[in-house]
Amino acid sequence: MTEIKGGRPHALTDAPFHYCPGCTHGIVHRLVAEAIDELGVEGRTVGVASVGCSVFTYNYFNCDMVQAPHGRAPAVATGIKRARPEAVVFTYQGDGDLAAIGTAETVHAATRGENIVAIFIDTAIYGMTGGQMAPTTLPGQVTQTTPYGRDVKTAGNPIRVCEMLSTLDGVALAQRVTVDCVKNVKAAKKAIKKAFQYQMEGKGYCIVEVVSTCPTNWGMAPTDALQWLRDNMLPYYPLGVYKDVGEGSQ
């Protein structure tokens, strides 16, 4: 039997989430908070909220929080980490923030090997603005701004972020997970905790990409969204470890 823990992690505030029904942000918030609790680092953690649906994360995490301009979370996190090297610093970014408007900041924070953790929520669509094409929108996928389906000839191809970042020397961990079932939630938790541990050991930039659902903008019931994720997103964005420098490395 799996033990079910009760109550909220201490690293989460009591504020109720504003997320839509079936959205997986809530699960990922909890996993991050559990990792912070288990490592006992809430008092020295600074989180960086980005722009998009997760903009309000500063209300949900109990650690100190800074809200960054759109796409700039890795630069803001760099500033915090360089100012306070003893702090544990993480960003929480969506696909538009991390892989479109903030691509430069992401790539350069990664290649510098900044000791920060990026929690990357990939839903293949823009949530906050109401369902437009994301850099990770799948070929053929219908969104508000790809009404005939994403035509890669005109709209370009999706970016596989973990694969791209895994080529950079500064990256200590690049892992893609999802939270569609208990088994995968557990694996995601393990990856997130490992990323925080790596930062504390000074290993470099760590990214955990969480392939996530957006039932509202996908126009699906939550369970259908989970199935759509399995059928469409996971084949294009395979789960796995794309880079891991290993426990003993520096």
Partner: peptide
Amino acid sequence: VYLQGESEVASINMVLGAGAAGVRA
């Protein structure tokens, strides 16, 4: 700390982060 950002956009946000963390940046 001297850090050459990848752009002015990144640099000012590093200043934002460091300033938010309470140092003179």
